[in-house]
Design a protein around this nucleic acid. Structure first.
Lengths: 224, 224
DNA sequence: CCGTTCTTGTTAGGTCTTTGACAGGACCAA
DNA sequence: TTGGTCCTGTCAAAGACCTAACAAGAACGG
């Protein structure tokens, strides 16, 4: 992934850095809300459990956000990162599939706070259609394509049953969605210009299990 | 993280490999259920969008699971990976915080299939206590420590409000939990022998946004 | 029996990522 | 002013990770 930094130079931003940018932003918004005005790379890095030099290195890809001797100003850093990540202008999204997971995500307030207002929820189940979650009504799936076109929705959350995942994704993409956040435990195939992010919840659990299993077992083997 | 492989040699298994093991297992279980008996590194790797050599390299840390010339046998590979990851023996877990996200996770059937049966759900809200989710009753939070001790629970899912996250986590750990799957948007501090995995849902969304933002903008910059 | 075509295990080399080190700016106190 | 302390941007070296390449085993057909 390439970007142009604020000095007009072109850089290839490593994936590892991209993955950390949201962490920085998330933490900085918390600081901002707490009234903190300035933060040093060391403070921010320590709170995220990474090295300060890595944080500065990451920022360096974008030309840096301060100057030598001056710590970062939270009120400048937040909008700068928001712009880089692409949440400076709110990114409206929809949730397709209003099962328990879909409803759970619809109730998650954090998304809105970080620039992803929920605009619509869709499901085929007539018993769910008409219900409201935090003011957003659940609409019939058949209305989804029209809704996406009309509101210019670019990001869709996929929480439908596995067996219809690919079909529903196709409909979303045909209607104009370019980013799919896939919670179904299957791979979905898409045209190359569409980004899919698979959120395999069970993977997180298994990583946890791998590590906890080795605790208390044989101390000689524990080392990470 | 170090392990001993099946040839008696000690290896340091890279984090990157550990992160992929659950993906392998997940895919293999799907194949197994579909009745597939054999699978080659190329087939498996392609379906996961990685290189075959990487997959073999990963397996190599554990001594390999076949021999030159013979593809992997699904029925042998699945239990072998289960044992390595630590889900050969089911890992019972609890969910603490029965809000919408907690309920959504409690309804997610996949966990059980992968070796993580849900044994208990806890919340302070009297309106929730007594409800059942898939046969598992929601119990008062005050009963959690006793329940953890009695049932030997090692893994807990944390889906409580942010402001009580640290306090509830402390209670879980004091009762014997050694793996915390943290869904709250805050860091929780724990003793070193406890593993915490932070599941920052918003981070996934922001990564998606970072990439979709650059699509269709300036094609010269798109390259990853 | 031999050649072809599939495999895996193994390793060396290249690539990506992290880290430590340092130059130089800013601020403060004496 | 001077010295001390904090800070960032920058880069080179070290470390972690991935990949291409290949030896060698297995299966099959002729």
């Amino acid at each position: 992934m390439r970007v142009v930094n604020n000095k007009g130079k072109k850089f290839r931003v490593p994936d590892a850095t991209i993955l950390r940018l949201p962490l920085y932003l998330d933490k900085l918004i918390l600081l901002q809300q707490a009234g903190v005005k300035e933060v040093s790379s060391r403070q921010l890095a320590t709170s995220l459990d990474i090295k300060a030099s890595q944080l500065r290195h990451d920022f360096h890809y974008f030309g840096g956000f301060s100057k030598p001797g001056r710590p970062y100003q939270v009120d400048k850093l937040v909008p700068a990162l928001e712009e880089i990540i692409g949440v400076d202008i709110p990114v409206p999204m929809i949730i397709v599939g209003a099962g328990h997971l879909g409803q759970g995500l619809a109730n998650y307030r954090n998304f809105e706070r970080l620039g992803f207002p929920l605009r619509g929820i869709f499901d085929v189940d007539p018993k769910l259609v008409g219900l409201e979650i935090r003011g957003v009504p659940i609409r019939p799936l058949s209305e989804m394509p029209g809704f996406v076109k009309e509101h210019g929705i670019k990001v869709g959350v996929l929480t439908v049953p596995v067996n219809v995942a690919q079909d529903v994704a196709n409909q979303m993409i045909a209607a104009g969605v370019v980013g799919v956040w896939n919670f179904t435990p299957t791979d979905i195939r898409t045209p190359p210009q569409v980004i899919v992010r698979n959120e395999r919840l069970a993977v997180g659990l298994m990583c946890l299990s791998f590590k906890t299993k080795r605790i208390g077992q044989n101390d000689e083997l524990r080392q990470d």
